[in-house]
């Protein structure tokens, strides 16, 4: 879902860049407050894992591929604001180092995959679901799966809105196509997210910020 240079007009690129910068400023404050020394290596290795996993495009319907994004996973593991930092690190490296995602679209890409895919998904999908579902490992993983799927699906809708506002593709064309294909890609996102979380719960449940001991029984 990395937007290249040329898809966004100035106002859309600028607005999303300002929103992302503001989000990042807040993220720095929150991470400083909430995370400790032991989280520093985790910020690094989670970024590296997401970078690596994003390279693995898997085929979905009709000559289309998709890949893991990781915003939801990072948010569930280390908290929403740490996930925004992690996604920004990954997206900046991809843009500057690997020509993946345009420099002028960097603000929008951070907005879509970090703020929507991580922060928004965490507060508005994951936490409400986690509260609503049973306080068990199964409930936790179910909430994570739905949040992961939704993170990709909603980010693709926001992306098509940006394309429409920029005058690149009318909403009635871009939105159904983007939402349709990302509804499928989101299934891959949910699978990877749940597999990683299940493994971490198995070996180091204490490392998942949102996972508490009481959930371990089932």
């Amino acid at each position: 879902m990395h937007i290249p240079d040329g898809f966004l007009d100035l106002k859309t690129a600028l607005t999303t860049a300002i929103a992302s910068t503001g989000g990042l400023g807040y993220a720095v404050k929150e991470v400083r407050k909430k995370l400790g020394d032991k989280h520093i290596p985790l910020l690094g290795v989670t970024s590296a894992f997401i970078f690596a996993a994003q390279m693995l495009n898997f085929p979905v319907a009709g000559g289309t591929s998709g890949h893991f994004l990781g915003g939801a996973l990072a948010a569930i593991l280390l908290g929403p604001w740490a996930s925004l930092l992690i996604m920004t690190v990954v997206l900046v490296i991809q843009c500057l180092g690997f020509a993946d995602g345009g420099l002028t679209a960097l603000g929008a890409n951070v907005f879509n995959m970090g703020i929507i895919g991580g922060v928004f998904t965490y507060y508005f999908i994951f936490i409400p679901l986690k509260k609503a579902l049973s306080k068990t490992k199964r409930g936790f993983l179910t909430a994570s799966a739905i949040a992961a799927w939704a993170s990709v699906f909603i980010a693709s809708i926001i992306c098509s809105l940006e394309l429409a506002i920029s005058g690149t593709s009318p909403l009635n064309l871009a939105l159904p196509a983007m939402a349709g294909v990302h509804a499928l890609i989101g299934i891959g996102e949910a699978i990877v997210t749940v597999v990683v979380l299940a493994i971490v719960i198995q070996i180091r449940p204490d490392l998942i910020g949102e996972y508490s001991e009481s959930e371990e029984e089932t």
Partner: peptide, 14 residues
């Protein structure tokens, strides 16, 4: 990663 799908991703295909 060398064996990842070479097909365009969702946004590119759209």
């Amino acid at each position: 990663s060398p064996f990842a799908s070479p097909w365009p991703d969702g946004l590119e295909k759209v």
